[in-house]
Design a protein around this nucleic acid. Structure first.
Length: 554
RNA sequence: GCGCGAUUAGCUCAGCUGGAUAGAGCGCUGCCCUCCGGAGGCAGAGGUCGCAGGUUCGAAUCCUGCAUCGCGCGCCA
């Protein structure tokens, strides 16, 4: 709709230049926007203001000339106004809004999708929690956000791959292995002193029990290093399976699980380091190999290979990110905890150093989640490693509420998550409110069916029966859905869809409360049934983008 | 100390990338059930958009400085 108006305005401007009524020849950037107040029409265009300087005329005067040059737009609008400092306001014909309803019904679950992505290959890497323990609530927010962003990118016409990066190469595998080994020995009656830097969670004991069930005390007869390796490998596989299962319960799946270790197995880390060296971007100092990231705006240089010869995590990250681009992705997205924000400049430096645009990598930072119960913070002993796990929260409030709450705020803003509110089955709980709107339409459909009515086709509907302001407002809001999705995808801001849902839910409940859908007049009933089912489709599609279900009954 | 991010209604937060009279939810006050699901709806009160400058037709939005808060600054991963 906006684009159609933009085209009309541009061709009107072209006509003015041809006729000589305007003569700067400029085609300035201008916006087509939905005004805050309905008296200002359905769309407002600020081109006259943008042109004022070049034309050296008052904006309102320019607007008059442009309006004179705008033809009927094929009946797209009823009326044009010039208002305020020189806005051109478009009052669209009602048929435009009725056409939207038809479009929604015929596109069904595809409504909201667009082609703005143009099929570009995008990769989004998220969660990527260390496979040394369960997912906690912070990972959950990253999972919900990454997954919703992926769904929105796909809907906006991108070719999306979801990837989980497994940190299975570093020292942590050894620590995990040693922790399990210790617990295993303990189980077998050996008196142990548990290492301070080990993983203290109870799940380590569980893993030791599982390992013992699978392999008996065989690992204990091995030399220490070998035993730790065996325990580490077993533990990591166990934890990854565990993580995968929790994510599945959360409705999150990955296309690819990418092993850090595989980078070393294929010698990719060394290859990339050689490339950096050949480009003269590295230097040696104090026996270590450094990347001169300061050349690209980082505040200090970074170590790639430590003086003891062991590559840093940064080194494999360099290789990993370069390999992403070699796999053909034109855009790469990382979802990180906000406490890692200091790593952004060095990764951008890597890209720039190796010939990519820094903007080819986008980092989505996820802020902290504060768990609350009745408004009081839930104690999380950070020291003891006693995080509240994602699984605990899913079990308590359900996957739907959990995901919805994680997505309610923009991701770079800290989030208060009230467990009691998330469980509540009332209008105070935003997810119930929106799901209820969907269930309510389904309920209306059931009532209609009992009366022998089915949802009509567009041809059977007399749209002119929809004259109430609420009905037109609903149609206009439904029309905004595709651009809302595209905007949310482009900016990686799933919360926009949440706000959209809230608005749509409110408008629908209000409409429902004000007038009967199924009444005495069949013409009106059919038209309203058609309208509320358009609403139902958009509610379902929007909830789907969040990974939240749209129940028919509650 | 340096860097990044924040600061909008009593509370929690949006604000479509510079537009017209700044919005929502919760809370508060007052209303609405012969009705397709009241798990709902309507109305009202509530703001110097942290402070001070600047940029321009126009600023919550962009720039500079200051204040307050959060996070990050390892040859850890």
């Amino acid at each position: 709709m906006k684009e159609r108006l933009r085209t009309c305005v541009n061709s009107a401007l072209k006509r003015c230049y041809a006729e000589g009524s305007l003569n700067s020849g400029e085609y300035p950037h201008f916006v087509v926007e939905i005004p805050a107040h309905s008296e200002h029409g359905d769309f407002a265009v600020n081109i006259a203001l943008a042109l004022a300087r070049a034309e050296k005329q008052a904006p309102r005067k320019i607007a008059e000339i442009l309006v004179a040059a705008l033809d009927g737009g094929d009946g797209l609008w009823d009326r044009l106004d010039i208002a305020g400092p020189g806005f051109i306001n478009f009052h669209l014909a009602q048929n435009c809004w009725y056409a939207v309803l038809d479009e929604i019904m015929s596109q069904g679950e595809r409504y909201g999708c667009s082609e703005v992505g143009g099929g570009a290959k995008v990769q989004i890497e998220f969660v990527s929690a260390n496979p040394t323990g369960p997912l906690h609530i912070g990972h959950g927010r990253g999972a919900a956000t990454g997954d919703a962003a992926a769904r929105m990118l796909a809907a906006a016409g991108y070719d999306v791959q979801r990837e989980y990066y497994i940190n299975d190469a570093g020292n942590q595998v050894v620590i995990l292995g040693r922790s399990i080994w210790m617990r295993l020995r303990e189980l077998c009656g050996v008196t142990i002193e548990f290492p301070e830097d080990g993983y203290h969670g109870d799940y380590i004991r569980d893993i030791a029990v599982k390992l013992r069930a699978a392999q008996g005390d065989a690992p204990l007869r091995l030399a220490e290093t070998e035993a730790i390796e065996v325990c580490g490998r077993f533990g990591m596989e166990y934890v990854i399976t565990w993580i995968e299962r929790d994510l599945q319960a959360f409705g999150v799946r990955f296309d690819n699980w990418y092993s850090e270790k595989s980078l070393y197995d294929r010698d990719l880390v060394q290859t990339e380091l050689n490339t950096l060296r050949d480009k003269g971007l590295t230097f040696e100092q104090d026996g270590a190999l450094w990347f001169r990231t300061t050349a690209y705006g980082d505040d200090k240089d970074r170590v790639l290979i430590r003086s003891d010869g062991i590559p840093t995590y940064f080194a494999s990250d360099v290789a990993y990110h370069m390999e992403k681009f070699e796999r053909g992705f034109s855009r790469v997205i990382d979802v990180w905890g906000a406490d890692h924000h200091g790593y952004v400049p060095r990764m951008k430096a890597v890209l720039e150093g190796l010939g990519h645009e820094p903007d080819d990598l986008r980092v989505l930072l996820i802020q902290m989640v504060n768990l609350l119960r009745d408004g009081q913070p839930v104690a999380m002993g950070k020291r003891s490693g006693e995080f509240v796990t994602l699984r605990d929260v899913i079990d308590e409030v359900g996957s739907d509420a959990c995901r919805y709450f994680f997505l309610m705020r923009r991701s770079d803003s800290p989030l208060d998550f009230d467990l009691e509110l998330a469980k509540q089955q009332s209008n105070d709980n935003p997810v119930y409110y929106v799901q209820y709107a969907h269930a309510r339409v389904c309920s209306i459909n059931r009532t209609a069916a009992e009366l022998g009515m089915t949802v009509p086709t567009a041809a059977q509907v007399d749209f002119t029966a929809l004259q109430l302001p609420e009905e037109l407002s609903l149609a206009k809001l439904l029309a905004r859905f595709p651009e809302t999705v595209a905007g949310a995808a482009e900016n990686l801001e799933p919360h926009r869809v949440v706000y959209y849902l809230q608005e749509l839910g409110t408008l629908f409940h209000s409409y429902y409360n004000k007038c009967r859908i199924i009444g005495d007049d069949p013409t009106t009933s059919h038209a309203r049934l058609y309208l509320v089912n358009s609403v139902r489709i958009v509610l379902a599609n929007a909830l789907g983008l969040l990974g939240v279900s749209a129940p028919e009954r509650m």
